[in-house]
């Protein structure tokens, strides 16, 4: 009897979080940064996490990204409960599965743009030919082929964030978490960055989950999750001109 082949799920689950909570200052004045949140994200989604300051966006992203541990609940990434992983295994899990883009770029200042992107692949133990190919491809996608050897200090904020996106994608992660990626950018740079992210989402099916305050970014998201006081108060598919095109 022929073995049953797994039918590829067009809507493969990437993130599945159940009842996750995070409380700061539990012993003094408890602050429920994330309160009993359920979140389900499918492959290829382009999701904005919105809400006022202190609503728990960054904490939720940190929990999903395995940068912090929830006080309760489970977070499954591609079927793996990351809340049960040891600190060492979690680091490796992040390296192989999650791409990060931070608000203030956070490139390694002593490395060139190319080296920043290569760094992740070196951690993964990839050979130089693989790295070279990927670097060429990514810098083509972010349209910065002429800035390969520039140090972060020699790049504009928008360029640095584009390199950060390339770095996040270098490891071929399952999804990318971006914490306020456009917060420090002017409107033109923010728009360019979003174009690149959307292009990657469309062409490579890369899943993006990003927090933002920026209405222009929210307008272009396919799904918008609103957080208030650590709770999800709405989860809607936004009407986006970018997607309807």
């Amino acid at each position: 009897m022929a073995a049953l082949e797994k039918i590829p799920d067009k809507k493969e689950t990437v993130i599945d979080a159940h009842n996750i909570s995070k409380v700061y200052n539990a012993d003094t004045v408890p602050v429920h940064a994330v309160n009993n949140v359920h979140l389900h994200l499918l492959k290829g989604e382009f999701t904005a996490l919105v809400g006022p300051s202190g609503s728990g966006k960054t904490t939720l992203l940190n929990l999903i990204g395995g940068l912090d541990k929830p006080d309760s609940g489970q977070i499954y990434i591609n079927g793996v409960d990351i809340t049960r992983l040891s600190s060492g295994r979690l680091i490796d899990f992040r390296l192989q599965n999650i791409g990060f883009v931070f608000q203030s770029f956070n490139l390694i200042p002593v490395l060139t743009a190319r080296e920043n992107v290569e760094f992740i692949m070196l951690l993964q133990g990839k050979g130089s030919s693989v790295r070279d190919r990927r670097v060429k491809q990514l810098f083509g996608q972010i349209q910065m082929e002429n800035k390969l050897d520039s140090r972060p200090a020699q790049l504009s904020g928008g360029q640095q964030q584009r390199v950060a996106v390339a770095r996040a994608l270098a490891s071929k992660p399952k999804f990318v978490l971006a914490d306020e990626p456009t917060a420090n950018l002017d409107s033109q740079s923010a728009s360019n960055l979003l174009d690149i992210m959307l292009k990657l989402n469309r062409e490579e099916g890369m899943t993006f989950l990003f927090s933002t305050h920026d209405q222009r970014v929210i307008d272009r998201a396919r799904r918008v999750i609103r957080l208030v006081d650590g709770r999800i108060v709405s989860d809607t598919a936004a009407v986006s001109t970018a997607h309807t095109q």
């Binding site: 990204g65 060492g88 680091i91 490796d92 951690l123």
Partner: peptide, 16 residues
């Protein structure tokens, strides 16, 4: 501090 935190976040092991 921030840079080192970022490196660990990206997947740099503590031994590295």
């Amino acid at each position: 501090t921030r840079e080192i935190g970022m490196m660990v976040a990206l997947g740099t092991t503590r031994i590295r």
